[in-house]
Write a protein that binds this DNA or RNA. Structure first.
Length: 253
DNA sequence: AAAATTCGCGCGTTGTTTTG
DNA sequence: CAAAACAACGCGCGAATTTT
């Protein structure tokens, strides 16, 4: 199976990809992001390595790594990528802001209201999808939690106010996917991830919140089942100028 | 050559959806 | 609404790539 995949890619982009045994491909609604590695791990190697990692992890004292800040930063990077890709793939191009009338500063309490709000939204609007980040209103000294949300649906502000019921809603206009000067339209939530990556108030909490089932990883060399659809599709592979990554575009039949 | 970046995994926990 | 069932992420780490 692996050889078939490799041969396929060699045929498409022959001389550039000599050989590789590991690839990770994100399907962002027809727009692909791909990374290739020429010396990846085999599945059995991977399993062995993770066992070793686990043993070491158990030996080290729980939650007391001297590299906490460093590891934390790595995870922020990860989260940023995931948020960006989710927004892109699921076209979460409408923006909401939800605030509390009461000065709720506890994340736990705020999240309680947020959860119930999402339950109501989900029940009333099937197919609703979102990605959200928390922010604190520190500028005005209030410190209250509020939420920045990227969503896939238009819901009238009036209705939204009623469903939220905790204060104020702010509905941003539809964000158009235009090229000129709009490189970062998928990044409008990621700044809040960076902003609070080291904030004590968010320690232990997920850096962002989102609907379930927003998968972006299209295929991975370690996941043979998920890779199958790849074989039935044609792609154009190009190299980004000045970078070592490849772009993969689906060629529509 | 060294430092920085990226990302998967396991565990334990947080978060989402369904059910009652 | 609460609780159960299901799903996903933070942390800590290693190992690979990429940048300096």
């Amino acid at each position: 199976m692996d050889n078939l995949f490799i041969r396929f890619c060699q045929a498409v982009y022959g001389f550039f990809i000599m050989s590789f045994s590991n690839a990770r491909i994100y399907d962002l609604d027809g727009d692909f992001e791909a990374k290739f590695f020429d010396a990846g791990w085999s599945t059995s190697e991977l399993k062995e390595k993770t066992k070793i990692t686990e043993r070491r992890r158990k030996l080290s004292a729980k939650g007391e790594s001297p590299d906490y800040e460093k590891n934390s930063q790595k995870n922020v990077t990860k989260a940023r990528g995931n948020v960006r890709r989710r927004i892109k793939k699921y076209k979460l191009i409408r923006k909401w802001e939800l605030t509390f009338a009461d000065n709720i500063q506890e994340v736990k309490e705020a999240d309680y209201y947020f959860r119930n709000f999402m339950k109501r939204i989900n029940r009333r609007f099937p197919g609703f999808k979102y990605v959200a980040t928390r922010e604190f209103q520190d500028k005005n000294g209030r410190g209250a939690v509020h939420y920045h949300i990227a969503v896939n649906m238009f819901i009238p502000k009036k209705e939204l106010d009623e469903i939220w019921g905790q204060g104020f809603t702010w509905v941003r206009a539809y964000i158009k996917d235009e090229k000129a000067g709009r490189k970062n339209i998928y990044n409008y939530l990621t700044k809040y991830l960076t902003k609070y990556s080291n904030d004590e108030r968010l320690k232990g909490y997920h850096l962002y919140l989102c609907s379930q089932g927003l998968n972006v990883l299209f295929t991975d060399m370690h996941n043979l089942k998920a890779r199958k659809p790849f074989y039935n599709t044609f792609f154009r592979i190009t190299k980004t100028q000045g970078k070592n990554s490849l772009n993969i575009m689906r060629i529509l039949a």
